[in-house]
Design a protein around this nucleic acid. Structure first.
Lengths: 313, 313
DNA sequence: AGATATATACTCGAAATGAGTATTAATTGG
DNA sequence: CCAATTAATACTCATTTCGAGTATATATCT
């Protein structure tokens, strides 16, 4: 090895508050939002995950509950310009991204929670299909296909556009969509990474380095996992009503669910158990408070909240 | 960063031949089988994956088709003893594992294909539930639970044993099972990594470093992906009969499938299309040859071979 | 011709899924 | 107190999917 390599650990720390899914960001250098990021020090930490937990514990007050490694990025040029490689190091930074789930609490000084649809406004289909898809994204992607100049390259682009934004919204393809918009020059990072002057539509809020890509990976992974592992409960208070649970799932998935079927599912699967206590809502009938039933882990194969969502058009 | 870190890239290169799922290994130092492994040189390679493709191309004759990053391991002490850290480096090795799918071809001199159930004999349920589960694994794990001395620690172990080897075989939990057997001292690597004299049952064939763990991760990922992405076709010849396809899926999943339902599924999903040609088998009625229908990628959300397998007891 | 092996077609009941309607229990404004 | 409103909860129903068969067709081998 001739060039020094250092390892950076980035974490997409996620939470839900009511109907809003959030991510913990640091207002980095006053320029771009960034994910909490720390170096891995092999002298101090036995494993990568322990390194992560260590500096997250130092920088914020969180107890990371569930954590999961996402992906290791080592790109030069693209999302990681070498001029910003990291503190005190001249060489390459390889960054290992993590997903962490937590309950919202008091954050440290420089960090704050932000709704993640600020970064991915096209991903929230709860109220309706986001208008920007028809008005901005699809026309721009049509041009992107055209610019390939016909032939096989154009076919591949057309297929990607269709898979990402065509008929049949697949809520899990968050990363694929972001990568497509990146390549089509629809997000700010594209111009920044390539040293070009910004032009055209810049969709969503940009982030530092490749952090938006890591966040996209995290959301995609979480949306997938939701369906076959009871991960939502990491984000919920110890007791909750079924509607609160549903709203949380909807927030994460970016879709509306059918209420009656949702409760049937959750109940039949044995994911929750009643506490006997009831909520005291401002209006409407009080709902029973439920808690997560740990037993499912033993009993069922894939205990998750399968979401047969409704996709508005 | 005080200590030097180097990045190693390991690849689990998988193929299927008839009924046998294989992995490409190098007979390393005459001691243990190893996965093809190479250093990442940041000076030469723009991305991690390009680095991987580069030296795999050098060491073997393969064109890696589908590749996917699996996991980045940075453990000290455990699977990566620092005395074997890698060529010419004194510090830690962080290893990035990859899954690659290919069609079996002529391999290079030092490499060879081996059936992956040599390393994980408990994972092959095609003929019957492997006898070693009842005769060796479960008794040993029972002792492992007992050794925790009751209380919460024992409960957690019991739950893990139950999830991994209890009622309801989940073919995807390959890594979880391997990790459990490791911790319970049922595989050779446990004794090697901890500098202990080997004792008790050593299940399956051991591999170098943490390579068996990476292979377990690869198999788990592949078994999962099978169901919602048409990855099997990366392993098949351009034309194949439906039974050949089924045998390949069964080999990967380690389960038997219901023939009539399998073809119904594959046909209804539009995963394949007939070529009009027919096989000329040694005995029995000739079967039509099919090819993968690329179109599905556009049309369907999760085009995979959903396997409602039969699990013998 | 008959045995054997495989391909392919079709059936049937059970369970899961998607989309409702109906009813109940609370609050709020008149 | 009554009607409107909001939300919880119960129940229905058609459709699809799934698991497990039976039945029949088309080869080869002896």
């Amino acid at each position: 090895m001739k060039e020094a390599v250092s390892i950076g650990l980035s974490a997409a720390i996620l939470a839900v508050e009511g109907e809003q899914p959030c991510v913990l960001v640091v207002a980095h250098e006053g320029l771009h939002d960034a994910l909490p990021f720390g170096p891995f020090d092999p002298a101090r930490h036995r494993t990568l995950e322990l390194g992560l937990r260590n500096w997250v514990g130092e920088q914020t007050d969180f107890d990371l509950g569930y954590t999961e490694q996402l992906y290791t990025f080592g790109d030069k040029g693209r999302h990681l310009p070498s001029s910003h490689s990291g503190p005190g190091s001249g060489g390459r930074v390889v960054s290992v991204g993590y997903l962490a789930l937590t309950r919202k609490g008091r954050e440290a000084a420089e960090t704050q929670w932000r709704g993640w649809y600020h970064y991915f406004p096209w991903e929230d289909w709860r109220d309706a299909k986001p208008a920007m898809i028809e008005s901005i994204i699809l026309p721009a992607l049509k041009k992107f296909v055209k610019d390939a100049g016909g032939g096989e390259a154009a076919d591949m682009r057309r297929e990607r556009v269709n898979v990402c934004f065509g008929e049949g919204w697949d809520e899990e393809r968050v990363l694929e969509r972001y990568e497509l918009l990146y390549e089509a020059g629809l997000v700010e990072e594209y111009y920044r990474d390539n040293g070009l002057p910004a032009k055209g539509a810049n969709l969503g809020t940009a982030m530092l380095f490749d952090h938006r890509r890591i966040l996209a990976t995290a959301i995609a992974r979480l949306r997938g996992k939701l369906k076959y592992r009871p991960v939502v409960f990491e984000l919920m208070a110890p007791a909750f009503t079924l509607l609160e649970l549903q709203r949380a799932v909807e927030a994460l998935a970016g879709l509306r669910l059918h209420k009656q079927n949702f409760r049937r599912l959750v109940a039949e699967q044995g994911l929750v158990e009643g506490t006997g206590k009831f909520s005291t809502p401002l209006r409407g009938r009080p709902a029973e408070l439920f808690r997560f039933r740990r037993g499912v882990l033993r009993e069922r194969q894939a205990p998750g909240v399968r979401l047969g969502g409704r996709r508005p058009r």
